[in-house]
């Protein structure tokens, strides 16, 4: 968590912009991880074929990838509280969307009696 007002000016960085600078090494590690997971997703899907669990595995991998992208590439790890709250709110609203939709469609074909 960073305080946006707390910047430390130095001679070659008069406005304190180098705080929270990503290291190239870290970015490369995240890149390799996301890429590796993408290829693993293709490989595992081809091997598994369509089974009951394929979709779960695929979405789990995609979620980890999206998490890495959001946390490192989209700088949520340096995020202010309000930015993190905004990001999480989108997931919260999406959850409402899915729950209400599915509560209807998953129960529509139930037979009473």
């Amino acid at each position: 968590m960073s305080d946006p007002h707390n910047t430390t000016p130095t001679a070659d960085d008069p406005h304190g912009m180098r705080k929270d600078l990503d290291s190239t090494g870290l970015l490369l590690v995240v890149f390799v991880a996301v890429l590796g997971l993408a290829l693993a997703n293709v490989g595992i899907s081809m091997k598994m074929g369509p089974t009951k669990y394929t979709l779960v595995v695929q979405l789990a991998i995609a979620s980890v990838q999206a998490g890495l992208v959001a946390y490192y590439f989209m700088h949520l790890r340096h995020g202010d509280k309000v930015v993190i709250l905004t990001a999480l709110s989108s997931l919260f609203w999406m959850a409402i969307l899915f729950v209400l939709f599915l509560a209807d469609y998953m129960t529509r074909f139930w037979v009473v009696g």
Binding site: V34, N41, V42, S45, A62, Q65, V69, A70
Partner: peptide
């Protein structure tokens, strides 16, 4: 990130 979900 959206593409990462469209793909599977």
């Amino acid at each position: 990130a959206i593409w990462l979900f469209l793909m599977p």
